Simulated assay, not measured.
Amino acid sequence: MTLRKRRRTAMMILLAGVVLALLGTDTGWIWLTVPGMTLLLGGLALDAAWVRCPRCGRWLGWNTGARCPACGTEISWD
Rank of each mutant, 00 (worst) to 15 (best):
A10R: 00
L40F: 15
T64P: 02
I13F: 03
P69R: 00
L32P: 00
C53N: 10
L3K: 03
I13E: 06
T9S: 14
M12R: 11
L22W: 08
L40Q: 09
I30Q: 00
W31V: 00
D47M: 06
A70P: 10
L44E: 13
I13G: 00
A66W: 07
C71I: 14
A49S: 08
M12Y: 15
P69T: 03
W77D: 11
P69V: 04
L22T: 06
G24M: 05
L15P: 08
G72L: 15
A45K: 08
D26Q: 04
R58L: 13
L46H: 07
G61P: 12
L20Y: 11
R55K: 10
G72W: 09
A66Y: 05
G61Y: 05
A70R: 15
R7Y: 14
L41V: 09
L32R: 00
L60Y: 03
C53M: 07
W77E: 13
W29C: 02
T33W: 05
G28Q: 01
T27R: 02
M12W: 12
W50L: 08
L20C: 09
R58W: 06
A10S: 08
A10V: 04
A70D: 15
R6W: 12
P54Q: 07
D47V: 01
L46D: 13
G24F: 02
P35S: 04
A16H: 05
A70M: 13
W50F: 06
R58T: 09
I30Y: 02
A16Y: 09
W59N: 01
R4K: 13
C68L: 06
G36T: 00
L46T: 10
L14I: 07
G65D: 09
G24E: 07
A21I: 01
G61C: 09
S76E: 15
P54A: 02
R7N: 14
I30K: 00
L3C: 09
I75S: 11
P54T: 02
P35D: 05
R58I: 11
W62M: 12
L44W: 13
G42L: 11
T64M: 08
L22S: 10
L40E: 12
G17T: 02
W59I: 00
I30R: 01
